[in-house]
């Protein structure tokens, strides 16, 4: 037996056996495994891609949330500012109105008071005039009960009238 000459019988069997082994393994063995691993690989890749996408989306969400929050804060501040402005405006308005009303009332009261005063004064004057006329009447009646006194009184009045300088 030579070491380096291929023997036909062994070559024949080797070819046959290898062909059978190849057929079995290529049909039922390796493709099943490699396909499964490829599928798993694909799934892992897709999962990673998904995770990355979700992460990106979360980041966008967070940014959007941040923006919304800032917007809300801004609006709040705006509203608060507007509200306080409105409030002070209303207060000012109310104050002004109140003052105007008060002034009006005061003015009316003054007018009324003045009128009341006037009428009261008039009444008092009338009263005083009446009283003084009555008094004067009584005095006159009393004093002029006799002729002498009437004369004296007339004289006196004439004196007085003479004493008072003429006016205008």
């Amino acid at each position: 037996m030579s070491l380096i000459t291929p023997d036909f019988g062994l070559l024949f069997w080797m070819t046959l056996i290898f062909a059978i082994v190849f057929f079995i393994l290529a049909k039922f063995g390796f493709p099943l495994l490699t396909n499964m691993v490829a599928k798993r690989q694909e799934r892992i890749d897709r999962s990673i891609a998904d995770a990355r996408e979700i992460e990106a989306r979360m980041k966008t969400f967070a940014a959007e949330q941040e923006a919304a929050l800032a917007e809300a804060r801004r609006t709040q501040a705006e509203l608060l500012r507007e509200a306080s402005e409105t409030r002070s405006k209303i207060i000012a308005q109310a104050k002004a109105d109140a003052r105007a009303e008060a002034d009006k009332i005061l003015a009316e009261a003054k007018v009324q008071i003045a009128a009341e005063k006037e009428s009261a004064l008039r009444d008092v004057r009338k009263e005083v005039a009446l009283v003084s006329v009555q008094v004067a009447e009584k005095v006159l009646r009393h004093e002029l009960s006799d002729e002498s006194s009437q004369r004296a009184y007339l004289d006196k009045l004439l004196d007085e009238a003479a004493q008072v300088p003429l006016k205008s």
Binding site: I24, L25, F28, G29, F30, L32, L33, M36, V37, K39, R40, R43
Partner: peptide, 14 residues
């Protein structure tokens, strides 16, 4: 090899 790959028939490799 067939014993090795038998697992894949019964499991979802994904």
């Amino acid at each position: 090899v067939l014993l090795g790959v038998r697992w894949y028939r019964r499991h979802d490799a994904r």
